[in-house]
């Protein structure tokens, strides 16, 4: 079984981002970048499938500028068999990321596509669903457990009401939620080895991808600041403060 995993380069999740004063975006110069945490989980799941003898080949793909190759190197260090870079000046919005990935999926014919449920920069939570639609494949989003059978998968999904179980025929697109697994770290020798491994470059033109118009960014602003609160010294004061605000009868 061949598994395709997409990884996105994003601002590290621990960074407190700053909005540019001119409102044109978020400051990214000199900011630590990492693999999107949900993509790390998707990648870990693929590696575990390979270790369990269910996956025979893992292909990692990333879309964007040259710098995304750093995240592909991390994927190689973790044990993916091939890394593919789809070069674009910037990461496309989900509508077009899905189109590029669909183009690649048609060429690679994976049995399973594993992705993170959302990227922590744009917080969209769209690309896996869109990709599944474009391919006409089943989707199982927000997965917290995946059981792979011969021609299908049983997936537990984290939904508002609790856990929903689906059975999907393969090939399918499955997006990872936080609790699917705990990703491992690459080992230093593997990181060194990954530096010399090849990364294939495939352009959107090679894949026959047609992009559609995206939403236009007009402005980025910091969220309204909450009024500075006050500290109380005791439970009685806390109750009094809540009464004052009319929050307790």
């Amino acid at each position: 079984m061949k598994v395709l995993v997409s990884v996105k380069r994003v601002v590290d999740y621990n960074v407190r981002i700053q909005v540019k004063p001119d409102g044109s975006g978020v400051m990214l110069d000199g900011v630590k970048m990492s693999m999107n945490p949900f993509d790390e989980i998707a990648l870990e799941e693929a590696i575990r499938l390979k270790e369990a003898g269910k996956a025979t080949q893992i292909v990692a793909v990333s879309i964007g500028p040259q710098a995304v190759q750093e995240q592909l190197r991390s994927a190689l260090a973790l044990g993916v068999d091939r890394a593919i870079h789809i070069p674009l000046d910037a990461a496309p919005q989900p509508v077009n990321a899905a189109r590029a990935l669909a183009g690649l999926a048609r060429r690679e014919n994976p049995d399973l596509i594993l992705m993170g449920k959302q990227a922590i920069d744009d917080d969209c939570n769209q690309t896996p669903q869109m990709l599944a639609a474009l391919l006409g494949w089943p989707q199982a989003t927000f997965a917290s457990k995946i059981e792979l059978n011969d021609k299908s998968a049983t997936v537990a999904r984290e939904v508002d009401a609790g856990l929903e179980y689906l059975s999907v025929d393969l090939p399918a697109v499955i997006s990872a939620d936080l609790r699917l697994n705990i990703p491992r770290y690459p080992k230093l020798p593997d990181i060194m080895k990954a530096r010399r491994l090849p990364i294939e470059t495939v352009t959107p033109e090679d894949l026959g991808v047609e992009f559609v118009p995206e939403a236009r960014l007009l402005k980025v602003a910091p969220p309204p600041k909450r009024q500075a609160g006050r500290k109380v010294a005791s439970v009685d004061e806390l109750v009094a403060a809540l009464r004052e605000r009319g929050l307790l009868s």
């Binding site: 919005q93 989900p94 509508v95 899905a98 917080d123 969209c124 939570n125 769209q126 690309t127 669903q129 869109m130 990709l131 599944a132 639609a133 474009l134 989707q139 989003t141 927000f142 999904r157 984290e158 939904v159 508002d160 559609v212 118009p213 995206e214 939403a215």
Partner: peptide, 21 residues
């Protein structure tokens, strides 16, 4: 919600348009 997030991007892709989250 998890319902809308699951369905709407798939519908948008079928329509060939972006989706706003």
């Amino acid at each position: 919600t998890t319902f809308g997030k699951d369905v709407l991007p798939r519908a948008a892709a079928l329509l060939g348009v972006p989706q706003v989250s």
